[in-house]
Design a protein around this nucleic acid. Structure first.
Lengths: 300, 300
DNA sequence: GCTATTGATGCGCCATGAGCATCAATTTCG
DNA sequence: CGAAATTGATGCTCATGGCGCATCAATAGC
């Protein structure tokens, strides 16, 4: 069962610690001392652990209280400061488009369209959440963003998907790596190489692993990172090779890194626009999405 | 005056959004529909803004609500999961080192040391969580990672910090941008330019804003993204300029992007190793950290 | 146009949280 | 060492708050 607490309970706890006493904390929070004492007791009951060890004239944190205190401080600080910023945002209504985009696609799809959009709507600001595929889907589903640019993957009935392009997985390695000399590669060429991979729970990794299992290819990783861009960084640093979507690799000529296509099988991911089924966009977002789809929509 | 709310108010808000209605949300939380309706109203009164736009048969988030929702989710998720974790000791895992690192520092500090470490311990695997500064601190505090490489920022008494280097904020722009021709820049040179910034809640942004406020410099952003790497991508794509830590900019010669130092004031961030005070590392992690510090520790 | 369903409101009732008075325990001071 | 001061906890009373029920006006579906 979920725990209930009041913000005032948490503030009371922090105040007791910072002011080193119930009386001073009560005074700071415009409560009587017994009222504050009871709030601390209720919080401890809700949590199921003592937070404070106290005799008369002395208060100290328990181990649980010591763990709890930074958490509570962060929560209250974040809440108070975010709320302040949100009030300011609420006063600037309508001038912002919020969207989620898998990081590697953000500056492939968006800049040209944004530039053209801003010719017609110069005062619209953009808030681009470059999130992982999983996080991006969640933010769309939850209504935290107007829409997302994401991978074709899980079949969530609450979301719709409109494909934009196919993005193949390619090898990324240093120019001085032996595989760089090969004009054409197959997956078996990669076996035995130190491989930099992203987390196995990420959308890209799941797609890739599934395709390789179907093809009977078996690779093992030596490094696991959270973001594709870090994969590239570690490749550049010489720790190994990586298999990345082409959009995650340098689009311009790179002095150190080179990419190679990999066949048998050719593995790719489908990128497109994710929206909530039946969801209504704000007018500015609707107009921007029309422009985006008009620019990138793949035939079929 | 501080705002008061109950956790149940926040859970009610999230439930209404996820279940798309007051009746279903009330049922999920074991309340009657009027009781839940009043909780939402009280929460909105406490916050001073509407969170939901609702008619009969339809509920949608307001802009403030859309901003508020991820904050609330993070708070509740963190609270619930941290309580659970607080009662358990972090499990020590053999054979793998898990660490958190701000993305831009990962492949600056780590590759050389990892390569040398693996010469002596070839079977150790690395799991590198390249997280934002805030997330990274949290993961260290919670014991989710052995240690972190992070910014010097908030003074959390539960964490220790060991500086590694100073990383200055620099301008990143395209080679064909007028500012690229300047050998030396001050902040006033950037005013009036379309600026790509990271989220105002990120560690880098907070540092930068604080320094600029002290210097009386006022910049405004046209694009806001979540990750520094996306800032760079949008700069490369020609949407604007960005102020980034030097480590976030291309280390090698880049065909399109150039960086310039910015003076008066010179703003920099301190990067170092974050550990839990009194925390004990697994033997492999302890050894790796010794090697890391031996390689990078700044004198003093 | 009718029906079903929604979120909001009025009302009565009961539970909750407040402050006051007081207590036992601890610390300080003479 | 004993008295006094101060602390956090508890009992009690009372005002307030939050609940569910009944009902309403508005909206969407058929």
């Amino acid at each position: 069962m979920s725990i209930n607490f009041e913000a005032l309970d948490l503030r009371a706890f922090v105040a007791v610690v910072e002011l080193e006493g119930f009386h001073r904390a009560a005074e700071a929070l415009n409560l009587s001392q017994p009222a504050l004492s009871r709030r601390i007791q209720r919080l401890e009951a809700a949590i199921g652990a003592a937070l404070l060890e106290r005799t008369t004239r002395r208060v100290a944190l328990t181990n649980v209280g010591r763990e709890f205190l930074p958490l509570v401080r962060r929560m209250l600080d974040e809440f108070d400061s975010s709320l302040f910023a949100m009030r300011e945002l609420g006063q600037q209504r309508g001038g912002q488009i919020t969207l989620a985009c898998v990081p590697t696609a953000a500056f492939y799809f968006l800049p040209g369209v944004i530039a053209r959009f801003k010719e017609q709507y110069p005062n619209i600001r953009f808030r681009i959440l470059d999130l992982s595929a999983n996080e991006g889907l969640e933010s769309v589903a939850r209504g935290e963003v107007e829409f997302g640019i994401n991978l074709l993957g899980g079949s969530d009935p609450e979301l719709t998907f409109e494909p934009l392009l196919e993005d193949p997985f390619v090898l990324a390695c240093r120019r001085d790596h032996p595989l760089a000399a090969r004009p054409a590669l197959t997956w078996s060429d990669l076996e035995g190489q130190p491989l930099v991979a992203v987390s196995r729970s990420s959308g890209n990794r799941i797609l890739l692993d599934a395709a390789l299992v179907r093809a009977g290819v078996r690779l093992s990783w030596s490094y696991e990172v959270t973001h594709l861009s870090t994969s590239l960084g570690l490749v550049e640093a010489g720790l190994g090779i990586s298999v990345l979507p082409r959009l995650a690799t340098p689009q311009a000529e790179h002095p150190i890194i080179v990419t190679r296509a990999i066949a048998d099988p050719e593995v790719s991911r489908t990128i497109g626009v994710v929206r909530r089924r039946g969801g209504r966009l704000a007018p500015a977002a609707e107009r921007f999405l029309e422009m985006l789809l008009g620019t990138w929509r793949s035939p079929g």
